[in-house]
Computed example of a mutant assay.
Amino acid sequence: MRLDILNRGYHPGSKLLFALIRLFSGHPVPDAAKLVFYRPDFYGARAKVFIHEAMRGPSAWTVADRELMAAYVSKVHESAFCIAAHTATARQAYQDGPLVAAVLADVESAPVPEPLRATLRMLGKLTAEGKLGAEDVREVLSAGVSRQQVKDALAVCVAFNTTARLADAFGFEVLSPEGFEAGARYLLKRGYR
């Protein structure tokens, strides 16, 4: 059920910004972006900082890797909006649509390095089951992933498990493929601020 608050309930300045974005981009503002403007003191301001740091902050994982993690977590969660948004962004970041499609179809046979595969496997388990054990983390570490990379990947997982749940709870509108491609270009250029 789509909540009407995503269609209205913004300050005049935010409404003007949304109109300008639509005018210049030719695409509506995605609901994920609108949500951070609704009650920014409660959710939006903190979410933008956390997600930007997880996705664009310093990390041994590339931006493309982290976008792929976001897409994979969204796929496990089955969030249509987040799958489409982060698949488009990962495709553009890697400049390799078939690679992204292969990972989302079957992480075990996808042509990715074992450290990334092990990490995606861990994130998928955490998303599907809601918990991890010490053995799950040891398996990722033994695949050559550093402790810091595990922390960085878990931050991506938290960000997109939260976002996917909000997308489903608020009934985020699924954009056109062109809208998601435009959003991906924006995310790759400006990040999540």
Results as ranks from 00 to 15, higher is better:
residue 84 A to Y: 06
residue 41 D to A: 12
residue 76 V to E: 09
residue 156 V to Y: 00
residue 4 D to A: 15
residue 136 D to I: 05
residue 185 R to V: 02
residue 184 A to W: 03
residue 144 G to H: 05
residue 106 D to T: 08
residue 87 T to F: 05
residue 151 K to I: 04
residue 179 G to W: 10
residue 92 Q to K: 14
residue 38 Y to C: 12
residue 95 Q to P: 00
residue 116 L to V: 11
residue 143 A to I: 05
residue 144 G to V: 00
residue 108 E to M: 06
residue 132 L to A: 10
residue 103 V to Q: 04
residue 116 L to D: 11
residue 173 E to A: 13
residue 79 S to N: 07
residue 55 M to H: 05
residue 45 A to L: 12
residue 131 K to I: 01
residue 122 M to L: 14
residue 14 S to C: 10
residue 28 P to N: 10
residue 130 G to C: 06
residue 29 V to E: 11
residue 76 V to T: 11
residue 19 A to Y: 06
residue 121 R to L: 04
residue 138 R to H: 12
residue 51 I to V: 15
residue 111 P to T: 08
residue 149 Q to H: 02
residue 31 D to W: 06
residue 93 A to M: 05
residue 50 F to S: 05
residue 132 L to Q: 08
residue 30 P to I: 13
residue 94 Y to P: 00
residue 122 M to C: 04
residue 132 L to V: 12
residue 174 V to R: 13
residue 40 P to T: 02
residue 22 R to M: 10
residue 167 A to T: 02
residue 148 Q to H: 09
residue 95 Q to L: 05
residue 191 G to D: 08
residue 193 R to E: 13
residue 92 Q to Y: 05
residue 104 L to Q: 09
residue 105 A to G: 12
residue 110 A to H: 08
residue 2 R to I: 08
residue 49 V to C: 01
residue 14 S to R: 10
residue 148 Q to R: 14
residue 69 M to V: 00
residue 9 G to R: 15
residue 148 Q to V: 05
residue 47 A to W: 08
residue 2 R to N: 11
residue 182 A to T: 13
residue 102 A to E: 11
residue 81 F to Q: 03
residue 112 V to H: 03
residue 114 E to K: 09
residue 13 G to M: 13
residue 30 P to G: 14
residue 96 D to P: 02
residue 150 V to E: 13
residue 131 K to W: 01
residue 9 G to V: 09
residue 27 H to W: 02
residue 25 S to I: 00
residue 62 T to F: 04
residue 10 Y to N: 09
residue 167 A to I: 03
residue 2 R to F: 05
residue 167 A to P: 03
residue 67 E to H: 03
residue 107 V to Q: 01
residue 158 V to C: 02
residue 181 E to T: 10
residue 45 A to K: 15
residue 109 S to I: 11
residue 120 L to G: 05
residue 113 P to E: 15
residue 9 G to C: 13
residue 35 L to W: 01
residue 55 M to V: 12
residue 174 V to D: 10
residue 21 I to L: 15
residue 27 H to R: 03
residue 51 I to P: 00
residue 169 A to G: 11
residue 96 D to M: 05
residue 152 D to F: 13
residue 37 F to K: 03
residue 140 V to K: 03
residue 57 G to Y: 13
residue 87 T to E: 05
residue 128 A to P: 02
residue 171 G to P: 01
residue 180 F to G: 11
residue 83 I to W: 13
residue 52 H to V: 11
residue 4 D to Q: 14
residue 56 R to M: 15
residue 84 A to P: 02
residue 162 T to V: 04
residue 113 P to C: 07
residue 35 L to T: 04
residue 14 S to P: 04
residue 6 L to E: 06
residue 166 L to H: 06
residue 130 G to A: 06
residue 110 A to R: 11
residue 153 A to T: 03
residue 11 H to F: 09
residue 93 A to K: 05
